[in-house]
């Protein structure tokens, strides 16, 4: 999955979950918590969504909540890192 595909998918997911207006978007480095789009209570559903999208279990054991701050950090953690074997197959 490319970075663009991943991020577009997450944007669509967040827009649906938070009832954001059609066409809503954000930059890859914008902090989603600061924008009020995400908070810790939302993370279980977001993690489940990412796992469904990637069809594999995300390895969260060595992560901090910072990986969910931006679209970029999420991609690096769950897709980019998997190329180096950091995500469970």
């Amino acid at each position: 999955m490319t970075r663009e595909e991943f991020q577009a998918n997450i944007i669509q997911y967040l827009a649906t979950q938070a009832s954001l207006p059609e066409g809503w978007s954000c930059g890859p480095k914008e902090n989603l918590f600061d924008l009020g789009v995400l908070e810790s209570f939302d993370l279980p559903r977001l993690v489940a969504h990412i796992e469904r999208m990637l069809d594999r279990r995300a390895d969260l054991k060595s992560r901090r909540s910072e990986v969910f701050f931006t679209l970029d950090t999420m991609y690096e953690a769950f897709v980019g890192a998997s190329k180096e074997g950091s995500c469970a197959p």
């Binding site: 663009e4 944007i11 827009a15 978007s25 954000c26 890859p28 009020g36 679209l71």
Partner: peptide, 15 residues
């Protein structure tokens, strides 16, 4: 009201 909306970023529009 929904959380803060930011201006659209054309590079990341939902297809």
């Amino acid at each position: 009201p929904a959380p803060l909306r930011t201006p659209r970023n054309p590079s990341l529009e939902v297809p």
